[in-house]
Write a protein that binds this DNA or RNA. Structure first.
Length: 585
RNA sequence: GUUCCCGUGGCCUAAUGGAUAAGGCACUGGCCUCCGAAGCCAGUCAUGUGGGUUCGAUUCCCACCGGGGACACCA
């Protein structure tokens, strides 16, 4: 049971029409008719007119002629109330009541699966988040997590088997600094409930000492030497503190509704990376400049390109590993562990060249799956005045602070509007609203556009925002509670003249499957974000113009069903974005 | 120097090459004895410049202007 069967039938009959007239097939595609109120699909005849070997006169006029001929040829297809040929388009208007019932019944049949596609058989890994342990998360990390987890939701809903992967930076100078500071000034301390906050505070303390405090840098260096020599005490501390960090991340992931199936640690691939470098040298791809110079792969020289792939540095001159050293074995490990049809990396746009180099190196090494690697690049989050977030300059907004502030603000509104609810419920609702409000601006714009963070708009719960969409849900829910709807699986009958707002809402509801398919194809949660808002707006229009409870019985029944279908569809859309829909707010 | 991304009302954003370029914020004025005003209604204002492809360009191509990023031992 699907929604748009009649389009396939139509296309077949149109092909027949083309065949009979010696016209090329496949030039006709249907789209929604723009200005709603009346509801239907439209096909522009221009491509067919342009391709007609027998055309005479200008294309627009010929398109109009063809539209009229096609209209007569098709007659009035099943399920449509009327057809017209206008301005070179063939417009087919649905038999509204009949189609409305079909959509609404289908939504109730599918419920939380409405909009989702059947299994594709594809296995896709999405690597995202990729935080460094011992360091705080800031608003820049937020975009990655939200984009990544939303893409996962969308691909999964579209039928792919999705493996959510997280690559954790658990080694490096930042870890040494943190542990050295901990041993010198906080030995024996245990993290409190708010682990992230505590880890972050200690990190900035360590960072400050590293900059300002005489002797601390030297202490770190000595500490690093011990670490390098395999000091067991340091290793034990490292494992313990790393886990604290991971626990802190998990708290944030739980709040953001992000999860992972496979965790990779940087420390896991460091040694295999060095081994791999030797293999690349044996293959004759790399040049060994040690001890003076690093090990490099001169891709432009190998490929005969010019300033395109540049030079990839894969091992430091002192033999220690680099980013690229570890990325290569990790990429291989992924394909060894899973039968991947695609390996997606959600990483910011500044790493585009590195990703391009890595793909090419793997290809040169003979891995035929190299072309299955896809860099899902997104732009960074800036501060007003085009200020890049940098912990060194103190220009970061910590995720913790943002979530706390937003939740507090939402809580005061919830308390005002729902004074009778328990404190716990009020807090849960405030959290759903706050997290939604924070997430929405991060996914509602194109991946390639810079997000400028400012507190005012981040904490604005009005206008095009998650709370607006959630509010539509709450209103629908409120009506359904009062309407005492029990059997949503009953057949709906729209046996009356539908208001334009109703038609518009049903039209929006019917669009979720195609919106999801598009979002999955292009990895664009922003399409769903826009759609969810438009849908909520359509519901609000309906809400304002069409009384549900205070109207005659048959209209009431239909509108209750419509309200219920709208709620399901809004909830499903929000779910794709990782935003929760509260019952009340 | 090479290369990638961005340029739409005062600000932020939307629009598989298709019909009258769609919203939000801000501003002004209305709407709670009527399903929840985190809402609704009304009003002013826009595709950087110049070419090209096309029946048709915000969308594709070229050049330029403006902003940002990347380009050998950070990740």
């Amino acid at each position: 049971m699907t929604l748009f069967d009649e389009q396939n039938d139509l296309i077949q009959r149109i092909d027949q029409f083309c065949l009979e007239r010696g016209l090329p097939k496949g030039k006709i595609e249907f789209r929604n008719i723009p200005f709603s109120g009346e509801w239907g699909i439209a096909a522009p005849l221009f491509p067919l007119a342009a391709a007609d070997p027998n055309k005479s006169g200008p294309v627009p006029q010929h398109a109009q002629n063809l539209a009229e001929a096609l209209k007569d040829y098709l007659g009035l297809p099943q399920g449509f109330a009327r057809s017209e040929a206008v301005k070179g388009y063939l417009n087919l208007y649905y038999e509204t009541s009949q189609y409305a019932a079909k959509v609404i019944d289908y939504v109730h049949f599918a419920e939380h699966c409405y909009g989702m596609a059947s299994l594709s058989g594809k296995t896709v890994m999405v690597e995202y988040s990729n935080p460094n342990t011992h360091k705080p998360l800031h608003v820049g990390h937020l975009r990655n997590v939200i984009l990544g987890s939303s893409v996962c939701n969308i691909l999964e809903a579209n039928g792919d088997k999705v493996i959510r992967a997280n690559y954790i930076g658990d080694i490096g100078l930042h870890v040494i600094k943190w542990m050295c500071n901990y041993e010198m000034y906080h030995a024996g301390e245990e993290p409190p409930a708010d682990i992230m906050r505590w880890m972050a505070d200690l990190y900035s303390e360590a960072d400050r000492r590293f900059q300002d405090e005489p002797g601390f840098e030297e202490a770190c260096r000595a500490y690093f030497g011990r670490w390098d020599a395999g000091d067991k005490d340091i290793e034990a501390l490292w494992l313990k503190t790393r886990q604290w960090s991971m626990d802190g991340f998990d708290q944030v992931y739980a709040l953001l509704d992000a999860r992972f199936d496979r965790i990779y640690f940087e420390s896991d691939v460091e040694e295999s990376g060095k081994v791999l470098v030797e293999k690349i040298l044996e293959l004759g791809l790399a040049e060994d400049g040690r001890p003076e110079n690093p090990v490099i792969i001169d891709l432009d020289k190998l490929l005969g390109t010019k300033e395109e792939y540049r030079v990839a540095v894969i091992l430091r001159s002192d033999g220690t590993s680099l980013y690229a050293t570890k990325e290569l074995p990790l990429a291989i490990m992924k394909f060894e562990e899973y039968p991947l049809d695609q390996s997606i990396y959600v990483i910011d746009v500044r790493q585009s060249l590195h990703m391009k180099q890595m793909r090419k190196v793997l290809e040169l090494m003979g891995f035929d799956w190299a072309d299955k690697i896809f860099h899902l690049a997104y732009e960074i989050v800036n501060l007003p005045g085009n200020v890049t977030m940098s912990s060194r300059d103190g220009t970061v907004v910590l995720l913790d602070d943002l979530i706390n502030e937003a939740t507090e603000r939402a809580l005061s509104i919830v308390k005002e509007k729902n004074p009778d609810l328990s404190l716990e419920t009020q807090h849960d609702i405030a959290e759903m609203v706050a997290i939604g409000a924070i997430k929405y601006p991060m996914i509602s714009r194109e991946n390639t556009k810079i997000v400028t963070f400012d507190w005012d708009s981040a904490l604005d719960f009005n206008g095009q925002s998650a709370p607006y969409i959630q509010y539509a849900c709450v209103r629908a829910n409120s009506i359904l509670k009062r309407g005492a709807v029990t059997d949503t699986h009953a057949q709906t009958s729209f046996d009356y003249e539908l208001e334009p707002a109703e038609v518009n809402l049903i039209e929006h509801i019917s669009r979720l499957p195609q919106e999801l398919a598009k979002a999955a194809k292009d990895y664009k949660p922003s399409l769903i974000a826009t759609y969810a808002y438009d849908l909520a707006k359509a519901f609000n229009d309906f809400y304002n113009q069409c009384p549900v409870l205070n109207t005659e019985a048959k209209i009431k029944a239909a509108r209750l069903a419509l309200t219920s279908a709208a709620r399901i569809t809004i909830e499903n859309s929000l779910h794709l974005l990782g935003i929760k829909a509260p019952q009340v707010m």
